[in-house]
C-alpha cells in the first residue's frame, strides 16, 4: 500500500468520511505547502499525546483534573450530567451554567447492550458529597436520553439531591406552524406560568 493509500484509508476511518472524501483530503494535503501538512500531523500527534480523561468528571482535557474541576470559581453545588465530552462545550459556551460537569460516556441502550455498568454512573455517585445540591441531567432529548435521565433520577432521588432535566420544546426563532407534533406535545407538557 502506498503512502497516499495509507493516509486515505486512515481518513476513511473517521466518522462521516467516505472513500472519495478521504482521497480528496489526501490530495488536498499533497497540494498545500509541506509545513501545513506537518502542522496538521503535529496537532494530531500532540492531541493523542496530551489529551486525557479527567479522573473526576471524565471530560477530555490536557490536565487532570480538567479546567472545570480545578477551577475554584465554578459553582460546586451543581453538577450537569452530559452524554459526551463534546456536549460540555455546547453548554458552557451558552454562558448559562457555571457549575461542574460529569460525562456519562453515552446513554442507556438495550439494543446496544449499554446498561448502567457501561456508563460513568458510579463515579458520579462518588462525587455527590454534602456540597452538591442539584444534578442537572442534560442527556439528549431522545428516548434513550429520557431513559437515562429516569435511571439517574431513580438512583439519585433517594439521596436527597434535587434532580432536574433540561426543558424540551420549541427552538428559539422557530415557527410554531412548522413544528412537529412530538415537539409541540413536549412544549405543551412543559409549559410554565408567565
Amino acid at each position: 500500500m502506498s503512502v497516499i493509500d495509507d493516509l486515505a484509508s486512515e481518513f476513511a476511518r473517521l466518522p462521516g468520511i467516505g472513500r472519495k472524501t478521504a482521497y480528496r483530503l489526501t490530495h488536498h494535503l499533497l497540494k498545500v505547502a509541506p509545513e501545513e501538512a506537518c502542522r496538521l500531523a503535529r496537532a494530531i500527534d500532540a492531541m493523542a499525546e496530551r489529551v486525557r480523561r479527567c479522573s473526576i468528571c471524565h471530560n477530555l482535557s490536557e490536565s487532570d483534573p480538567c479546567e472545570y474541576c480545578s477551577n475554584p470559581a465554578r459553582d460546586r453545588t451543581t453538577i450537569c450530567v452530559v452524554e459526551e465530552a463534546s456536549d460540555i462545550r455546547a453548554i458552557d459556551s451558552s454562558g448559562g451554567f457555571r457549575g461542574l460537569y460529569h460525562v456519562l460516556g453515552g446513554c442507556l441502550s438495550p439494543l446496544d447492550g449499554i446498561g448502567p455498568d457501561e456508563l460513568n454512573v458510579e463515579s458520579l455517585q462518588s462525587r455527590l458529597d454534602e456540597n452538591v445540591r442539584e444534578v442537572i441531567v442534560a442527556t439528549n432529548p431522545s428516548v434513550e436520553g429520557e431513559a437515562t435521565a429516569a435511571y439517574l433520577h431513580k438512583i439519585l432521588d433517594p439521596r436527597g439531591i434535587r434532580v432536574t432535566r433540561l426543558a424540551r420544546g420549541l427552538p428559539v426563532g422557530g415557527d410554531l406552524e412548522y413544528a412537529d407534533g412530538v415537539t409541540i406535545a413536549q412544549a405543551l407538557a412543559g409549559r410554565r406560568v408567565i
Partner: peptide, 27 residues
C-alpha cells in the same frame, strides 16, 4: 407523518427495556 409517538416508554426503565426487546427481536 406522525401517527403515534411513544416517548413515554423512555420514562420507565422496564417499559424501555421491554420495547427494546420487541424491537431487537424484529430487527
Amino acid at each position: 407523518e406522525l401517527h403515534r409517538e411513544r416517548q413515554a416508554l423512555g420514562r420507565e426503565l422496564v417499559r424501555y427495556a421491554g420495547a427494546g426487546l420487541l424491537s431487537e427481536i424484529v430487527l
